[in-house]
Simulated scan of single mutants.
Amino acid sequence: MVHPLVSIIVPFKDTAPYLEECLNSVLAQSYPHWEMIAVNDHSKDNSLAIVTEFAKQDPRIKVYPNTGKGVIQALQTAYSHSSGTFITRMDSDDIMTPDRLQVMTNLLLEHGEEHLAVGQVKYFSDRGISDGYDRYEKWLNGLTEKGTNYSEIYKECVIPSPCWMAYRTDFEACDGFNPHRYPEDYDLTFRFYEKGLRVIPCDKTLLYWRDYDQRTSRTSEHYAQNYFLDIKLHYFLKLDHDPQRPLVVWGAGFKGKKIAQSLTEKNIEFSWICDNPKKIGKEIYGHILLSFEQLDEIENPQSIITVANEEAQKEIRAFFKLRTMGNILDYFFFC
């Protein structure tokens, strides 16, 4: 029976309070054929001492210093020391379920190359989970259960960064951890999408995702809203934009203005739709804001939707359905 080696890439920095729980969850895996490549990103607490002690007890755990600075270079450093057939990432403050590696390796062996194994996730916190994280968890798991993650790729990151696994060959075809673009997990998700790695449906919770105030996604400027918008627009223009079709931006809030500004700077023509009577008819970035009714005057458009209100989004989807226009073809929700 084939037992491929799984390389678990684990960058860590100042996560001492959570490391033992994380490392013990890896040691408890029912699938034993793994190596953990842990890279210390200049920790100032006793994180390095904790990981080093675990490495003394189990040779499958290997510890290296970051050759650069920051999570991307820590990931690059870790990957350079890995040798597994399968590659997965784990964050040093999260917890694997005991069957995570077994489930994911089985899925990849069953479906073969050009597939991506993804597990469902469960947020946890000492103070309880916010409504926003609860909705994100349910939305993400709903996609993962069906394997339809890419259908909403322009809304949020649809692949949980600490809960995916891929063949090494496929991972390298996607350029691995090489690009220096934040948020690095969202960028990698778009590259999985670009290379056509098919998401394998999964109905099992395989990761407990910890939320706390010092979590990197909460504290680092690299995970601010404008970084997400830059990535969305970058890949939309690269992968899904048809320059032969008129482009329309829906919404004139923060995200709509940011997208409109970026398109203007790139000299890309677009029409701008808005439902705010106070803004309709005004000129911003050299574009007159139009009412929704005027969209029917634009022939065969592609639309970027930056309207965040959920009820408004339902109405917008109904608008497109009535006109037999398709998601990730004719319209793209950016929020």
Results as ranks from 00 to 15, higher is better:
residue 107 L to C: 05
residue 262 S to H: 04
residue 105 T to L: 06
residue 266 K to F: 13
residue 118 V to C: 03
residue 292 F to E: 14
residue 220 S to P: 00
residue 159 I to E: 05
residue 6 V to C: 10
residue 148 T to C: 10
residue 161 S to L: 08
residue 49 A to I: 13
residue 223 Y to V: 03
residue 247 L to C: 01
residue 80 S to D: 09
residue 80 S to I: 01
residue 43 S to W: 05
residue 245 R to V: 01
residue 279 K to P: 05
residue 48 L to P: 12
residue 136 Y to R: 01
residue 270 F to D: 03
residue 330 D to A: 10
residue 111 H to A: 09
residue 15 T to I: 08
residue 227 Y to H: 12
residue 165 M to R: 08
residue 14 D to M: 06
residue 331 Y to G: 00
residue 171 F to Q: 02
residue 293 E to G: 09
residue 128 G to V: 06
residue 209 W to S: 07
residue 26 V to M: 08
residue 156 E to P: 00
residue 156 E to S: 10
residue 239 L to N: 14
residue 47 S to P: 13
residue 214 Q to V: 00
residue 214 Q to K: 13
residue 51 V to C: 06
residue 182 Y to M: 11
residue 28 A to Q: 13
residue 159 I to H: 00
residue 84 G to Q: 04
residue 259 I to V: 15
residue 34 W to P: 04
residue 25 S to R: 00
residue 335 C to G: 07
residue 39 V to Y: 02
residue 162 P to C: 12
residue 186 Y to S: 01
residue 241 H to Q: 08
residue 289 L to F: 14
residue 333 F to A: 05
residue 46 N to C: 15
residue 136 Y to S: 01
residue 173 A to G: 11
residue 299 E to N: 11
residue 328 I to W: 00
residue 43 S to F: 09
residue 215 R to K: 14
residue 218 R to A: 11
residue 95 I to T: 01
residue 224 A to I: 06
residue 176 G to C: 03
residue 221 E to I: 14
residue 262 S to W: 06
residue 160 P to G: 11
residue 307 V to T: 10
residue 209 W to L: 11
residue 86 F to R: 00
residue 108 L to H: 02
residue 231 I to Q: 02
residue 88 T to H: 03
residue 36 M to D: 07
residue 226 N to R: 15
residue 59 P to H: 15
residue 4 P to K: 12
residue 113 E to N: 09
residue 75 L to S: 06
residue 230 D to V: 02
residue 210 R to E: 01
residue 17 P to D: 13
residue 29 Q to K: 06
residue 137 E to H: 06
residue 80 S to K: 09
residue 238 K to W: 01
